[in-house]
Each structure stands twice: as C-alpha cells, then as structure tokens.
C-alpha cells in the first residue's frame, strides 16, 4: 500500500441549490482505515460524499482519489447511498440487486456471466444474506436491505468504499454483521469512508474522523479529534456569518470563485 492518501480533498466549496453548504474543505484520508465523516444534521456530510463521488460539481476546489482524478480510478471506488434514496418496491430480488454491482457501464449487450454470479454469491455470504437471495427486496427488514446494498458494493471489488449512513434504521443483528464486515475489509487493506451522525458510536467505530459542520472542524485520528472543544465547536451550532453569506450567494446568484481563478 502506498502512502498516497485514499482521498485528497482540496479547498472544496459546494452548494446545494446555489447555497453553499460546504466551505473550503481541505483534508486527506489515509488508506486502509475506517474513516468517519461525522457531524450534526445538515452539516453537509452527504454533500461532501456526493462531491467525492462526482455526483455533484463543486463550486471550487477538487478531489483526488488515490492521487488521481476520479474518472481514472472509478473502478477502484464503490458508493453505497442512503437506504431511503431508492424505491424498495422495485421489481427485483436480492440477487438481482447484488448483480447490479457487476454491470459494466462501458459495455453494450452485456449479460450476467457465471463469474458475476459467483462473485455476487460470495458477497452475499460475507453479509450473511445468502439464504435470502431469492427474496423480493421489499420483504426485507431495514438492516437486511442495508446489507444487500453493501453486498452489491462488495461485488464491485473496489479498494475504496463510501457509505452514506449505513447504520441508520438498522437492527442489532445487522449492525453487528456490518461492523464485523467493515473491520474485515480494513484488515484486507480496503479503505472505508462512512457518513455517520451519531457521536456516541463514532468513537468506537472509526480510526480516523473528519468532523464537519458546513466547515471542517477537525480531521485526523479519532483520539485527536475527539476533544471536548472540537466536539463543542462542531455540535454547538452553525456559524451565523457563514449561513448569512450563503443565503446572499443563493439570492444574488453570485459565484464562489471569480472568473478564471484556479485552485492550486
């Protein structure tokens, strides 16, 4: 494993409906760790994840993954969205969903091969869901649905995994299954980044934490970040100046960077 950071976020400012919700985020996530993006509701955690995944265009700054542009290393990255972001009434059983992790975006007329199936079965085994492979996805509990999502992600055989709130609405059995899997992945040299809102468990789960509240409060090993001042700063309310100027930018349709100005 090289020393290149898994994710390098450089001066990133991002807006949601033109209102900046992330200000000048600048931090690096090391490889081979369990990393938490932690902060209160509305602190921009999901927005940060979407910017890392290229699902949103930042107003300024950039993100590098394994030292490269996302498009060059996309096959090494896997994303697990929030469970509520999809319609679980979609006509598919568990196996169908996991196999979606094997779909090739660059190929036409592609069909699922036996190798894809074997990989999907392996992924389902790792989340303890193989016995449910023929079950319709709407008939699963919240925790089981989350495990199916993670299995689909595992089937992509990536090196970096980004998960949005995988512990929300999850039963105790699923939480245990997911946690032990995450540790397992870390021990295999994978990097896992998790958006998480619960401070209590964050300390136990993660090696490394980015503490967020529209700006980056701290970013580093868990013991260094979990100090009472920093937590107070992250959870003690938003900076009113930032939210006032954000509203102004939205209202006047103002840019965040002047024309032609580059981030370097």
């Amino acid at each position: 494993m090289s020393n290149v950071p898994a994710i390098d976020i450089h001066n990133l400012t991002a807006s949601y409906e033109r209102k900046p919700v992330l200000w000048e985020i600048d931090c690096q996530f090391p490889q081979g760790k369990l990393i938490g993006i932690v902060g209160p509701n509305g602190s921009g955690k999901t927005t940060l994840l979407k910017n890392i995944m290229g699902l949103m265009k930042p107003d300024s700054g950039y993100v590098k993954i394994f030292g490269d542009k996302l498009n060059k290393v996309r096959h090494r990255v896997s994303y697990v969205p929030q469970r509520e972001s999809v319609d679980w009434d979609f006509p598919a059983d568990v196996m169908d969903v996991v196999l979606m992790g094997r779909y090739n975006p660059k190929k036409l007329f592609s069909r699922v091969t036996q190798e894809d199936r074997d990989i999907a079965i392996e992924a389902l085994k790792r989340v303890n869901m193989l016995e449910f492979s023929k079950r319709h996805i709407s008939q699963l509990s919240g925790g089981q649905q989350q495990r199916v999502f993670i299995a689909r992600s595992l089937a992509q055989q990536a090196d970096l995994y980004l998960m949005d709130e995988p512990f929300v609405g999850v039963d105790a059995a699923s939480e245990d299954a997911i946690l032990s899997l995450l540790t397992d992945m870390k021990n295999n040299g994978k990097t896992v980044v998790i958006v998480h809102h619960d401070l209590q468990t964050a300390y136990e789960y993660f090696d490394y934490i980015a503490l967020l509240n529209t700006r980056l409060v701290a970013c580093g090993p868990t013991e260094e970040v979990f100090t009472s001042e920093l937590l107070q700063e992250a959870y003690g309310g938003r900076l009113t100046v930032l939210s006032r100027i954000g509203e102004l930018i939205a209202k006047k349709d103002f840019p965040v960077r002047e024309k032609g100005q580059k981030d370097n």
Binding site: P81, S85, M100, Y103
Partner: peptide, 24 residues
C-alpha cells in the same frame, strides 16, 4: 433496448449508484 438493458435497469432502480459506478 437489448443493448442498454442493464443500463436502464440500474438507473431505474438507483440513479446515484449508477452514476457513481460510471454510467452516463
């Protein structure tokens, strides 16, 4: 339809993941 069947399937179910997996 046969050519883009997997593309349509994954986008119909989970747009965000499809996009982040590199689907246009």
């Amino acid at each position: 339809l046969a050519a883009v069947y997997p593309h349509l399937t994954i986008i119909s179910f989970d747009r965000a993941t499809a996009e982040s997996n590199g689907f246009n």
